[in-house]
Design a protein around this nucleic acid. Structure first.
Lengths: 212, 212
DNA sequence: TCGCAAGATGAAGGTAATCTCAACTTCACT
DNA sequence: AGTGAAGTTGAGATTACCTTCATCTTGCGA
C-alpha cells in the first residue's frame, strides 16, 4: 500500500479528475480484492504473460469479471504490478540506504538488489525490463527507481569511483540486460555479466572512453 | 545394424543413413529454391518469427508446399538460417584474421563483428542469441563461432590482456546480451554495454574476482 | 419480502499462428 | 496423346489467447 507520506495541513480534495463513480457493491469489492491477489500471485509465479483465464480461475471468478472490474488486461496489469514493483523498489532502496560505506558501494548494493529481485520475481522482471507501454503507473515506478540510482551514481562519480563518462541510462541497461539473462534462466551467467559491467564502470587509469 | 561392407565390391555408400529418396521433380526443385530464397529474405528482414504465410506468398507458392518440401517450420528454419549464419560467422572470422595486432585486438574485432552482424540482420540475431532448440545445424554454427572466439581468448589471456578468471561462456553471453539490446532497438546503448563489458574483461591490477 | 440495478457468467467471436489432407494439377515417361 | 506418380493447393482443424455481450444472479434499499 502506497504511503502518501505527507502530513498535510488541511483536507485536500482527492484526485482532481476522479470520475465520481458510485461505490461498488460488496460482492464486487470482494471480487476486486480476490482478483488483485490472484493476479499478483500468478504474475509473480509465471510472469506477466499469464493468461487471464488462469487468474480468473485462481480468484474463483470468470474472465468477464476482470473486464467488468478493471476494463482491460493492461489496466489490471498496471494496477497490480505497480504495487508489486513499488514494493520491490522500496526494498532495494532500503537496502542501499542500509549499506554503510561509499556511494559506489550503495550503488552496487542498490543495483544488485534490483537485479536479485528480477531473478526472484518474474513479474517484477517483466515489469522493469520488458516493454509495457500501456502501463503508465508501472513506468512511473521505473522512473522512480532510475532517479534513485542516478542520485547514487552522481555521488559515486564525485567520489571518483565511477568513471566520468558513465551515463544514467547505462544503469537502466543493467536492468534490461539482467532481465534478459534471468529470462534465459542463466543465473550464474547473470551474476558474472553484472560483475563485468561493474568492473567496466569503475573509474580507472588507462580505460578507453565509452562510445557515444 | 552394422552393414557388413566387404560384399560391396567398389562403391561405399556415401552417408551411412542417407534415406535414399528418389530425386525431386523439376518443379519441386524450383520451389525448394524459391522457398529458400524467400525464407532467407523474409527472415533477414523480419526475424525468425516471420509467419510461413508470408514466406509462401513471397515465394509464390502455398504453405502446403513448405510442409511438402521441408516437413516443418523448424526444419525450414534450420536449413535456411544455418547457411545465413554460417556466412556471417565466416565473415567475422575473416575480419579477425585480417586484424593486425594482439590476440586481444583480434578478439575484440571478432566479437565486434558478430555483434554488428546481429544488429544488421534480425535473422542472424535470433539465430545466435535466441534459443532455437529444434535447429541442430544452427547450433553447430554457434558452437563453431564460440570455438573460434575461445581460441582468440586463450591467446589474449596468455598475452596478459584478458583477465585470468574470464571464461569462455562469458563470450557467449556477450552475444546474448547484445542480441537483447538489438531487439530493444537500442543501438547506441548496445555499443556502450559492449564497451563496458570489454573494459570489465581486461586484466587489471586491483580488479575484483568474478563470481562463480 | 420484493424489485431492480448492479454485477457475474461463459459461450461465442475475433485474431493470429501452425499444421493437415482430400481434391486437384502437372511433370515426365512411354 | 495418355497415364500415373509426384507435387501443389488452400480451406479447415487446431491451439491459444483477448474481448464482448445476452442472459442469468444477487445485493440491498424500500
Amino acid at each position: 500500500m502506497p504511503n502518501d507520506g505527507f502530513l498535510n495541513s488541511g483536507e485536500v480534495s482527492t484526485v482532481p479528475e476522479a470520475p465520481q463513480r458510485p461505490p461498488l457493491r460488496a460482492d464486487a469489492r470482494r471480487n476486486v480484492e480476490k482478483l488483485r491477489q490472484a493476479a499478483a500471485d500468478a504474475f509473480s509465479e509465471h510472469g506477466l504473460d499469464t493468461p487471464l483465464e488462469t487468474i480468473a480461475k485462481l480468484a474463483g471468478v470468470s474472465v468477464g469479471t476482470i473486464y467488468n472490474r478493471f476494463g482491460s488486461r493492461d489496466a489490471l496489469l498496471d494496477e497490480v504490478v505497480n504495487e508489486l514493483a513499488d514494493r520491490q523498489v522500496r526494498a532495494a532502496m532500503a537496502i542501499a540506504d542500509g549499506t554503510a560505506g561509499s556511494a559506489w558501494e550503495k550503488l552496487v548494493a542498490y543495483v544488485g538488489a534490483i537485479c536479485q529481485a528480477q531473478a526472484d520475481d518474474p513479474a517484477f522482471n517483466d515489469a522493469i525490463s520488458r516493454r509495457y507501454p500501456n502501463a503508465p503507473a508501472l513506468k512511473a515506478v521505473c522512473d522512480q527507481s532510475l532517479a534513485f540510482a542516478t542520485g547514487l551514481a552522481a555521488g559515486a562519480r564525485t567520489e571518483g569511483a565511477l568513471r566520468e563518462d558513465a551515463r544514467m541510462d547505462d544503469i537502466a541497461r543493467f536492468f534490461q540486460v539482467n532481465g534478459d539473462l534471468v529470462r534465459a534462466g542463466d543465473d550464474a551467467g547473470r551474476r558474472r555479466v553484472l560483475a563485468l559491467l561493474f568492473e567496466g564502470l569503475r573509474a580507472r587509469a588507462g580505460s578507453h572512453p565509452l562510445p557515444g
